[in-house]
Simulated assay, not measured.
Amino acid sequence: MPTLEQMSACMRVCQTLSNFYVDIHLFRYDAKREEIYILAGDTLGITIFPSGDWEFDEDEQT
């Protein structure tokens, strides 16, 4: 189950994506890692940690 901090951060991230009309393609909670992963737009990946901190995925394309 996601933490309250995680759920709050998730709502802020999803609202921001929505404000910029970015499609959210995947929303997943990984119970083993206790992380939320959001895939949005063409290549935007966001991980939300139990603390509520979040980060963009590293772009490994060259």
Rank of each mutant, 00 (worst) to 15 (best):
T43F: 15
V22K: 12
R28K: 10
E55Q: 12
L4D: 07
H25V: 08
H25T: 11
Q6K: 03
D53T: 02
N19F: 07
Y21E: 15
T47A: 00
E60Y: 06
P50M: 02
R12D: 11
I24G: 05
D30K: 01
I36G: 00
T62K: 15
R28A: 10
Q61F: 13
L17T: 07
I24A: 03
D53Y: 04
E34S: 10
S18A: 06
I38W: 00
C10N: 03
R12Y: 04
F49K: 14
M7G: 15
W54D: 04
P50T: 03
L17Y: 06
F56N: 07
E35V: 07
M11Q: 08
A9E: 10
A31R: 08
L4H: 05
P50K: 05
L17K: 08
V13R: 04
Y29K: 02
M7A: 14
A40R: 11
N19G: 07
E5C: 11
F56I: 08
T16A: 07
I38S: 01
Y37T: 08
M7I: 13
E34M: 03
S8W: 08
K32Q: 01
S51D: 08
D23M: 04
F49R: 15
Q61S: 15
R12L: 08
D57G: 03
A40E: 13
I46W: 12
L17F: 02
Q61V: 12
I48M: 03
L39E: 11
